[in-house]
Amino acid sequence: MTPGLPDWVAVLTAILVLLGSILTLIGTIGLLRFKSFYARVHAPTIGTTLGIGCVLIASIIYFSVLQSRPVFHEVLIMIFVTVTTPITLMLLVKAALHRDKDAGKDHMPSHPAD
């Protein structure tokens, strides 16, 4: 597909992309397998941290070699994802606790959440 791409770059990119996709898949398998919502919250974090991280590192290496200059704007996605996932997950867990409390199921330990 691309002439002049060193072999080690091709192999490294391939392994990183595969690893990233496998980790994301495992995250969604956890999403399907776990029984309760609070256990499921943990599963997709695999995809958002190492899963996407591996693909982004592969992309950085591949395009840097391909265009023979440092290409690292993928770091932006990494920053956005790591800063934003805590917010969404925190909001979701809080919302779930609220809804469960309204439904009469209380998961809380001895201390109230807010």
Binding site: V41, T45, I46, P86, D114
Partner: peptide, 16 residues
């Protein structure tokens, strides 16, 4: 909060 949530297996819920 970012650290705790970014490590799979732990999720930040709330802080009093």
């Amino acid at each position: 909060a970012c650290i705790i949530t970014s490590t799979p297996g732990t999720v930040w819920v709330s802080f009093d």
